[in-house]
Amino acid sequence: MLHVEKLYLKKEDFSLKNLSFEVKKNSYFVILGRTGSGKTMLLESLAGIQKIKGEIVFDGKKITNFSPEKRGFGFVYQDFVLFPNMTVKENIVFASRYKKIENASELYEDVITFLEIKPLLKRRIKHLSGGEKQRVAIARAIYARPKLLLLDEPLSAVDPTFRNTIMKSLKEIVKRYDTTIIHVTHNFREASYLADKIAVMIDGSILQVGNAYEVLNHPKTMEVATFLGYKNICPSGMIEPQHDKKFFSIDPSAILFSHFSSTTEYCFACRIDEVMGVTDHYKVFAHVQDVTFFAKVSKTMFDKLGLKEGLMCYLCMHKKDVIFI
């Protein structure tokens, strides 16, 4: 449906670096990256707001040089960009001023019911909460019947208590309104819940694209693993000298301590260097060869094993819990 090939854009000292990816029709595609990684710039490039080098093809047609109006995409910015001098209803139906909306009345009623906006229709924008503004902005975008819906950090200004509700609504939009969504965020939980596919974006480059489980659980590079918060990234040679991947990672909660070695798992003699007690577990830092591992140990297991600073014991890992990078 959407094919992007070697998209390049330079703004001052920052650039989008020859980005290439595809988004399938009626899918939910999430671009995941830190603030300042170029996510909004990419959305604006897709929308036609930024002039780029490279090629954008939509439904088999080259649209690289099309104006935003000609592309027919919907765009919901992080700060919503609603019209403050209009009511909620006037904001939602604004698209009918410049284009004919197919089955407008039925669509309007469905959208305001689906997003639970009926009680807000006569209000001015300044009297809405962040979550209410978000729903109105999404309703306005859907009402215009976009071929592709671009969402820029749509949950950033929403109260955490309403975030789950809005995420469920976003998930339903693709099928309910026969559209495709590209959603940018820095939030891993959002990406995991919403995405059919995730693209990880770092410093203007897309480093990995794949289904949500694959990307979040099997990072392909050190940069992606670090960004995703992986801990205990160590040379693969420690456990598999001939492995084709250079590094491995083990989750702190998956590390086991024992007074005995095991030949069925990865086990190393270690020295416990530091112990920090928190609410329901201990943070344990253990030294293996020239590497320090960080582990989370339940208080029950910690007491059972008699772990303490300076203790010599074994640090073990189930092979199934090790991720190679």
Score class of each variant (00 low, 15 high):
Ala191Gln: 04
His186Arg: 09
Asn211Cys: 04
Phe257Arg: 03
Asn211Ala: 07
Met222Gly: 12
Phe227Ile: 07
Pro219Glu: 04
Gly210Leu: 06
Ala199Glu: 08
Thr226Asp: 13
Asn232Lys: 02
Lys231Asn: 15
Ala199Leu: 11
Arg271Asp: 11
Val184Gln: 03
Thr179Pro: 00
Phe247Met: 11
Leu194Val: 06
Ile173His: 00
Pro252Gln: 00
Lys231Trp: 10
Lys231Thr: 07
Asp280Trp: 14
Arg271Asn: 14
Ala195Val: 06
Ile250Val: 02
Val174Ser: 00
Pro235Ile: 02
Ile181Tyr: 08
Leu194Ala: 10
Val200Lys: 00
Cys234Pro: 08
Glu172Trp: 06
Glu223Ile: 12
Thr221Pro: 02
Ile198Ala: 04
Asn217His: 07
Glu214Met: 13
Ile173Glu: 01
Lys175Gly: 07
Gly229Phe: 07
Lys175Asn: 14
Asp251Glu: 15
Glu214His: 07
Asp203Gly: 08
Ala225Asn: 09
Cys270Asn: 03
Cys267Leu: 09
Met276Lys: 15
Val174Asn: 02
Phe248Ser: 02
Ser249Asn: 01
Ala225Ile: 04
Asp273Gln: 14
Lys245Glu: 10
Thr263Lys: 14
Val275Lys: 06
Thr264Cys: 13
Phe247Thr: 03
Asp203Pro: 03
Val200Ala: 10
Asn217Asp: 13
Lys171Gln: 07
Ser262Asp: 11
Thr264Gln: 13
Tyr230Asp: 06
Leu170His: 02
Ser262Arg: 14
Glu223Pro: 01
Ala212Phe: 08
Gln242Cys: 15
Glu223Ser: 06
Ile250Leu: 07
Val215Lys: 02
Cys234Asp: 12
Asp280Tyr: 11
Phe248Val: 02
Glu223Thr: 04
Ala225Ser: 05
Val278Trp: 13
Asp203Thr: 08
Thr279Pro: 13
Arg271Tyr: 06
